[in-house]
Simulated assay, not measured.
Amino acid sequence: MNKPTTITIEDVARAAGVSRQTVSRVINRKPGVKTAVRERIETAIADLGYVPNLAARRMGGARSFLIMAINDRARTIENWTAGRGNDWVDQMLHGGMLACEEHGYHMLFELVDTEHDEAVRQVGRILTSLQPDGIILTQPHSENAKLAQMLRERGRPFARIALPNPEIPSLSVHFDDAAAARACVDHLHDFGHERIAFLAGNSTYRGSLDRREGFADAMHEADLQPVIGECDFSFEKAANYARSLMRGDGAPTAFIAENDEMAFAVLNVADELGYEVPEQVSLISFEDTPGARFSVPPLTAIRQPTAAMIGRACEVLIDATGKTEVEGNHVLPFELRVRQTTGPAPR
């Protein structure tokens, strides 16, 4: 049996009638190649079935062609183990992998403990073994100053998926959590709601703090009293808190939940206690996972631009290859998707 022939970069260069260096520039998504030449090379790659060798590419320069994103280990595993899925992770992979693929890169996804010193140790070991060209810190890792300092000392540019923090100079990619919370209050207030409760996530997440601050500010501006319950993104805690409010005097006529799981808890309690949604109680969720569209009734929700944020972070880090630090502030738009869980306040 004949051994399959290995297609090399030189074969591609001969087929396209260009130099090896020009083929390399196209493979590595570098500028300076005319469109017609780039298309000819890409056609030759496809016709020959050439697959670039990552190890060889790394030998040709300092780049690893890897971008690494890290996420909260305990919470991610908890969601997976409980069978709840994790739309945040799905959207991270969607945005990051497509952006990396477009630039000839690969995306790594790592789960890291949130305790600050342990996070530094874990990420340090990963850097030593894989040498990613850039790192994406999601919350709450984005607020770990020790981790940021270690990355700077190791000369690894990083992006924080969070509001800028003057104590951690970095590339910041985020949406305006506070403005999104205010948009929720405005939407409900326009319907005449005055007793609005906010089901808060976890204060170790910067975005969660920004949302509750935005909620409180909007309520005060409307001369309304904010009601905030600490529910830790949990169905059970949100259900217990909502139940206690809805059974009491002066029950809220509307709820804002920081994730869909807590919003589903409110729907469950409303059904249990005989509340009609939205006729007797309205509800808005952050997150907008696929389940939000299929709940009964479908959830009005803030759609977070998670995929776009991770994709933007990847693109900026890739463009900054060779730099040891990257700074900047990229604010992406959110969307309030109005469905069937919000309506006029009951009279």
Rank of each mutant, 00 (worst) to 15 (best):
Asp271Lys: 14
Ala320His: 12
Arg182Glu: 15
Asp87Met: 06
Pro132Tyr: 00
Tyr275Met: 10
Phe264Val: 06
Gly60Ala: 12
Thr306Ile: 14
Arg57Asp: 00
Ile7Val: 15
Gly274Ala: 03
Gly248Phe: 05
Glu167Tyr: 02
Ser129His: 11
Asp186Arg: 14
Thr321Ser: 13
Arg243Leu: 12
Arg339His: 04
Ala216Gly: 02
Val123Pro: 09
Ser234Trp: 06
Pro140Asn: 01
Asp249Tyr: 02
Lys323Asn: 15
Ile7Gln: 06
Ile45Cys: 08
Gly343Asn: 12
Asp72Lys: 11
Ser208Gln: 11
Ala119Met: 09
Ile136Leu: 02
Leu209Arg: 15
Glu42Ile: 00
Asp11Asn: 15
Ala263His: 07
Ala242Val: 05
His220Lys: 12
Glu143Asp: 14
Ile284Phe: 13
Glu39Cys: 01
Val173Phe: 00
Pro166Asp: 11
Ser64Met: 00
Ile168Met: 04
Ala145Ser: 14
Arg243Met: 09
Phe109Gly: 01
Ser19Trp: 04
Glu118Met: 07
Glu10Thr: 13
Ile256Trp: 06
Asn144Glu: 02
Met219Leu: 03
Glu327Asn: 12
Leu147Met: 01
Gly229Pro: 04
Met107Pro: 05
Asn259Thr: 02
Leu147Cys: 02
Asn329Tyr: 01
Glu261Asp: 13
Asp186Ser: 03
Ile70Asp: 05
Met150Pro: 14
Asp90Gln: 03
Phe191Cys: 10
Glu236Met: 06
Gly134Trp: 09
Val331Tyr: 04
Ala257Tyr: 07
Leu336Cys: 10
Gly311Asn: 08
Ile9Leu: 13
Leu93Thr: 07
Ala180Ile: 01
